[in-house]
């Protein structure tokens, strides 16, 4: 969690630095009066690295993925809840008193 968060921050810093260096590069081009055809290769590499870091962080920081398959163990319903709202007390349990504890109160 802490590691993922740190990597995410580093990734965002990388992206910000890439943007800053592109602006710098363009202003440099203006002085030398050259056409802007694309950012230099180092900036592109920085961009890709920052993107990968951000991607990794955004997949790990929020937590574990849950299964969406209906047959997976987390989703497969094996029993319905006992319909407790319709519970009734007039049943055969009456004939078998619970002989465990009569000690309370």
């Amino acid at each position: 969690m802490g590691l993922g968060y740190a990597v995410g921050v580093v990734g965002v810093l990388f992206l910000a630095h890439a943007a800053y260096s592109t602006i710098q590069y363009r202003s440099l081009l203006k002085i030398t009066e050259e056409e802007f055809s694309g950012p230099p290769i180092t900036v592109v590499m920085e961009l890709v690295g920052g993107m990968l870091f951000c991607l990794w962080a955004s997949l790990t920081v929020p937590g574990k993925f849950l299964s969406i398959l209906p047959q997976s163990d987390e989703n497969r319903v094996v029993a319905l809840p006992a319909n407790l709202d319709f519970m009734m007390f007039n049943h055969r349990g009456k004939a078998f008193p619970l002989g465990v504890d009569m000690k309370l109160k």
Binding site: D73, E74, N75, R76, V77, V78, A79, L80, P81
Partner: peptide
């Protein structure tokens, strides 16, 4: 609803 993992738990 009781899922398989909850049942095992």
């Amino acid at each position: 609803m009781v899922s398989k993992t909850e049942d095992e738990q």
